[in-house]
Every structure is written in structure tokens, then in C-alpha cells.
Design a protein around this nucleic acid. Structure first.
Lengths: 203, 203
DNA sequence: ACTTTAAACACTCACAAAGTTTCCAAATTA
DNA sequence: TAATTTGGAAACTTTGTGAGTGTTTAAAGT
């Protein structure tokens, strides 16, 4: 493994575990068993390291999502599998990491959020098309509209000041959002399938 | 509820959720709906607030432990119930909070750790006496020695550089430590009881 | 032996935030 | 109602951490 990749992985681990502000470049250099001077041969500055490691995380996560989607046998199962994956992933996200990203690296956060939205929108559009072809989703649905509605709900689910934040925890929020979403878009046939499988949603 | 108590509770929530360094006095004042000037009427400085809120947490936790112990029907059940409680409590402890305490408030951390050890030692000593009287623990056990061994294991369980840190997660560490400890100190009768109940240890 | 590399650590400086002060509106008291 | 007190909002000063750079020197490589 290349040192530069190892650096991203280790930095990401530390940022995710302890938050970003608390982890100094001295800490990272020490963790990597190298001097700070050497560390700066790999990254321009801390901002660069933060952005690179966050992008690395996004890339890994996107690939994991694609693998999950590739294993799902129909559109509803895709949504349930992705929800399950998202719940697992968010369990590893330390609130302080998000807090620090928003507070100290707002541009990086915005870019990350934009990329994430583009990816989610793409997944939802594909999923709607797939669901229509399966006969599980209502044929009159507009991919664009549903994707925008879904993103609205997902944005609210991670916003500490939203109505949704009052729910018990993130797993419960996602569960409710998925339940709502799938009921909104399924045909009668789709709903029969949904009733049989939603209890398997892994919390 | 008194404002000063509410301040401790809210501060503790924020520190536990986002870490200590990331949460500024501005953030706390804003969260409390008061100005920084008013905030400083309640605490001397940030250090004071951190120490007070950590002590508050310790006091609450100690009381919860005492309640748990009061409901246990014998010495082994006490240990299993406390382990379960500790696992639940540690699930809420953000690694970044501990990291920040150790890094930026070492004296406060040391004092907190000392108090915690004294409390644990006291619980273990009582538990050993209780277990001997029940006939569940070996009569030749020395309370002092066993308490010291147990503290050694507990210290290692929260030290990121220890051998124990290689285990999967904290719940697993505690489970293994409790299993080990109880096997070490039980009589034949105690071990029969233990086999029947250790699977109920809440992970 | 000579050259290159990188660790360890010293150093400078920027900047965030701790803590203090000011202004002024709101609340309380007489 | 007027006077006094209180506390919010924000400006301000100070402090200290840590980002990033530079130096020394030992270790590694040729």
C-alpha cells in the first residue's frame, strides 16, 4: 500500500474517531511514524488533508453503495438495502466530525454535500426507473420530482435543527423516511412486497 | 430546575456529543440562550465548566450504579448488572470527549480517574465480601488483591495502546474481562450460577 | 566516504477562542 | 413614571495552541 493512501486511511480513522479539530498534524505525523516535515511532502496543508480524506471516504462509500445495489433483486429491495447500509455507515459517523467539518471547513463540507446529493439523486432516478419497469412503482411518477422530495427528507434527517431531529435517533429517522417514501411511490403490487420485507430493515 | 444545573446538563450533552475542544464558550452560551457575559457569572472559566460537568456526570453515574447494585440479588448478579450498565454507558461516551479530556485537561482527567478508581475499588471490595457470604466466591480471596487486579484490567480496557484494545470493541472487552474475572473468583456453586446467567449479559 | 533523506525538535506567526468590556434595550424596582 | 439593574449582543483584547517552516543531526542509501 502506498504511503499516501495509508495516510488518508489513518487520517480518516482519527478524524472519524476523535473529530477534526482535536486531531493535530503533530498527532497524525506521530500516528504515521513520520515527522511533520515528511507529512507535508504528502499534503499541502491540513485543509488539503481533510478534503482528501473526506473525498476518500465518499469514494469508498459510493463503491460500497454500488455493490449493495448490485445485489438487490428489485427496486424496493434496493431501497431497503441502501437504507440498511446508510444506517450502518451513520453509526460510525461521529457527530463531532460532522460538527467540525461544518464549522471549520465549510467549503469542503459544501462540496462533499453537493457530490453526495448528485450521487443520491442519480441512485433515486435509477431506482424509480427500475421500479416502474418492475411494476412495483407507480408508472406516473416523475423521477426528477421524487428525487428532489427524497433529497429534501434526507437533508432534514441530518440537520440538527429540523423537525425530524426530534425523533429518537438517526436509525429511527431513516426507517421512518424510507417507510414514508416507499409507501408514497409503490403500486399495489409493490406495497404487498413492501409489507413482507420492511421488518427486515436492519436497525 | 436551577440554571446552574441546567448549564451543567446542557454543557455535558454538548461535550459528549461534539467533543470538548470543538464546543466553544460562544456555542454553549448560544445553546443556553444567554450571553457569554452571563455564562461567566456561573463558571469561572472553561476549565471550571469542563471539570464541573465531568464531575456531574460522575455523580450521576455513581448514583445509577448504586441503584443497579441495590437491585441485584447476589454478588454475581451484581457484577453482571454493573457490566451491563457500564457497556450501556460507554456506548454513549464519544471517543473524542475522552481524547480531549486527556489532551487538554489532564489534571481534571486524573482527578476524575482517581475518583472513579476509588469508587470501583469500593464496589469490588463490597462485592467480594458479599460473594464470600453468599458462598459464591472463594473464601480465601483477598478483597484488596482482587480489587487491584480488577482495576488493572479496567484501566487496560480503556487504554488505546493496551493489548486489550485489539479486541473488536469495548463491549467485547468488558464481556471478556467480566467472564475472566468471575471465573477467577467463584466457587463451584458460584460457577454453576455463572454458567446459567452470563449469556444474559446485555451487549 | 560521501550524499541524501528524514526524524526530532525548535521556531515564527496566524488565528480562533477565552475572557473582558461596552453599549443599549429590556426588565425590575421604588 | 423615573431610576436602577440586568443581561443580550457584539466589539475588543489577550492568550495559547497549533499550522507550517526551518535547523540540526543521525540514519539510510549509494
Amino acid at each position: 500500500m502506498e504511503t499516501s493512501e495509508k495516510l488518508l486511511i489513518r487520517s480518516l480513522e482519527m478524524f472519524m474517531r476523535y473529530g477534526i479539530k482535536s486531531v493535530s498534524m503533530d498527532d497524525i505525523a506521530s500516528e504515521m511514524g513520520m515527522s511533520k516535515k515528511t507529512l507535508y511532502q504528502y499534503v499541502k496543508d491540513k485543509r488539503d488533508l481533510v478534503n482528501q480524506s473526506v473525498n476518500y471516504h465518499f469514494t469508498q462509500d459510493r463503491e460500497a453503495c454500488s455493490r449493495v445495489l448490485g445485489h438487490s433483486s428489485n427496486a424496493i429491495e434496493q431501497m431497503l438495502d441502501i437504507a440498511s447500509h446508510v444506517i450502518q455507515m451513520m453509526r460510525q459517523m461521529n457527530p463531532s466530525t460532522i460538527y467540525d467539518l461544518r464549522k471549520y471547513y465549510p467549503e469542503g463540507w459544501k462540496k462533499f454535500e453537493e457530490h453526495r446529493k448528485v450521487f443520491i439523486v442519480s441512485c433515486i432516478r435509477d431506482n424509480i426507473q427500475n421500479g416502474k419497469e418492475n411494476g412495483l412503482y407507480r408508472p406516473e411518477l416523475s423521477e426528477d420530482v421524487i428525487a428532489k422530495i427524497y433529497i429534501t427528507l434526507i437533508d432534514a434527517s441530518v440537520n440538527p435543527t429540523s423537525e425530524l431531529a426530534e425523533l429518537q435517533n438517526y436509525s429511527e429517522i431513516i426507517r421512518q423516511v424510507i417507510d414514508y417514501h416507499l409507501h408514497a411511490i409503490t403500486t399495489h403490487e409493490g406495497r404487498e412486497y413492501l409489507y413482507k420485507h420492511i421488518e427486515a430493515l436492519n436497525l
